[in-house]
Amino acid sequence: MASLLRRLVDWARSRSPWMIHYCAACGAVEFPPLVMSPLDWERYGYMPVPSPRQADFVAGMGYLTRKTVKLMINLFRQTPNPKFVVAGCNCTATGGLYWDSYATYKRLDDFFTVSGWVPGCMPMPDDWTALITDLRRQIYEGLKGDKLKDAEEFIARVEEGERKWREEYFAKPQPPVNYAFKETYPECEERYERVKLCVTSVRRERLKTALAELKEKGFVLLSNIDAVDYPKNGVIELYYFVENKDDSSQVALKTFVPRSEPEIESVHDLYPNALFIEREVYEMMGVVFKGHPELRKWILDGNWEGPPPLRKDVDTATYVVKTFYGGDKYGR
């Protein structure tokens, strides 16, 4: 009798698994075709629900950035039992194309037990259907819910190691500056007609005045700031791309800062969006923008604790292989 009741419950459960509506990564882009036209999910009893409290399963939809994983653990905790984890996409399973990315965890089963995997980069809607259909079958057959593994400890260990690396990195002496630089502003030193780009160099002391002058001339849009690291020369080159509002021609102002003292004036009062681009360059390259009101981590916050990852002498690939793949580049 009791077993009959349990089978009835399992049957009922398997009829309508609901998923947490959380578009965790790029795999989520194949969900609208699945949920709406042409596959119309709801006729099978599946549904994306906004709250984890109503959900039955969590889907890993692609690369697991570290920040997302913390959130997924949180969501999983809030989901009522029995709860299930399924995984689509390759990055969820092995790291996939992003095997050397410093900001992702490589395997979902480091954190949860997982009930089904569908490979693909990315899986098509049909494949997601197959995944959930099989989950249904498993629930019907009496699958017990998935569990959280001892994840916090792993995360804490990784982040602790990175913090130590950061300290060591900044304690190292910087190479001396050995770099030829000639100021050419306002003449172009390189000109690319087709993309309407003119590259010119200016010393960092004069950068802000040069930008102010350009802005007067109609270059009102700050397109981007690029930073290129040259450890051999002991400098970081900076390119400020500004764009003219009338004919969309661009000027790239090239300047440099020594690696021993990577400081430059912030230009956010001239270009409001510099506030965010500078913040990004700061965290990725370790260039300090003087006068910036809020110079702290932004995109890397929660993703990476180590030294500025885009510096050339920060070898993140080796680090990742060592930490997440146990030293084997092809390992799972």
Binding site: K67, L71, D100, Y102, A103, I299, L300, G302, N303
Partner: peptide, 15 residues
């Protein structure tokens, strides 16, 4: 609050 999708493309390109 960005960063939930950061993979570090610029670094991966160099590898």
């Amino acid at each position: 609050i960005p960063g939930f999708l950061h993979r570090g493309f610029e670094k991966m390109m160099e590898n």
